[in-house]
Amino acid sequence: MIPVDSNFIFAVAPRFSGNKKAAQERIIGAISSIFSTTLDRYAINTRLRIAHFMGQVTHECAGFCTAEEFASGAAYEGRQDLGNTQPGDGKRYKGRGLIQLTGRANYRDIGRILGLPLENQPELAAEPVTALKIACEYWKKRNINTAADRDDLISVTRLINGGLNGLEERRSYLIKAKSELARIEGLIVAANEGGNSTVLHRGSFGAGVVELQELLVKKGFALSIDGDFGAATELAIMAFQKANGLEVDGIVGKNTWNKLHT
C-alpha cells in the first residue's frame, strides 16, 4: 500500500485562501487518516490507480473545497431516471460526495451498501469520510481501475463525467499526482536500499538524470539526453528493470543503479 495522506492531497490540489482554504482544510483533515486504507479497500492501490483517482476527484470536488454541488439541485426535480418521484426530491437529493451522488434512487442504493440512512438523511453524503466512500463506490461500480491501469485518461474521464468536461484540468491534476507518487515511492526505495544513492523518478531533473539517460542509451535505449525524467525515460527504466529481474516501478534506486553500471 502506498502511503498517501494529507501531504499528498495538498501536493496535488490547488491552494486557496479565505473561506475556500478553511473548507479545504476541513475536508482534507477529516479524510487524511483513512485515505490510504479506504483507497486500498477498493483496490485503488497502485501508482496509476491512485493518480487517476486523484486527477478526477480533485476536479470533481473543486480542489477538495466542497463535497456538495454548488447548484441548488432544482434541475433534477421530477427526474424519474434518478428516482426523484416526490416533490422537492431534486433539491433534497442534489449532488453530494467527492464524486457527486445524485437522485433519490442512488442515495438509497449507496446508503444500503454503506449501511447509512442516506435516503432519509441525504445531507450525510456531504460529510467528508462518507463523501470519500461514495467516490470509491462509484469508482468500483464503474470498474474504473481497468481504464486507470491502461493510463487511459480519456476513458477514465468519460466513465466519471459522461463526456470530457474539464479534461485539461483533470490531466494537470493527474500529472501532479503521478509526480508526487513517484517522489513518495522514491523515498521508500531509498529507505529500503539504505538511502546511499540518488533516487530518481518521473519528474526528476538535472545532472543525475543526464547520467541515467546516458547509461540507458549505452544499453541500447533510444532516448533524448535532456536531463528531464519524463515518460520516455520512465518506460525505458521499467523495460530495463523487467529485463534484469528488478522490481518494475520506474524508480531508479541503488539496485537499479548497480545494474545500470554493470
Rank of each mutant, 00 (worst) to 15 (best):
P87L: 11
L174P: 05
A147H: 12
R183D: 05
H201I: 06
R26V: 15
N106L: 07
E137S: 12
T58Q: 03
L235V: 11
T130F: 00
W257E: 02
F16A: 08
G230Y: 01
V156N: 01
A51I: 01
N255P: 11
R183W: 00
D81N: 14
A11W: 02
R41H: 14
G194E: 09
V209L: 06
K141C: 03
L48Q: 03
I44V: 15
G90A: 04
K133R: 15
I134D: 02
S179Y: 10
S36Q: 15
R47V: 13
K140R: 15
D151T: 06
D151L: 03
F205P: 04
V217T: 06
L48W: 05
K21H: 12
R183F: 02
P14D: 12
P87Q: 13
E169Y: 09
L116S: 05
H59R: 08
L223F: 07
I154Y: 09
Y173A: 09
G186C: 07
I144A: 00
E69L: 03
N84P: 08
F240V: 00
N244G: 06
I9R: 00
A147P: 06
G250A: 03
V210I: 11
A30G: 13
G115R: 05
F35T: 06
L246G: 00
D109M: 11
G166E: 00
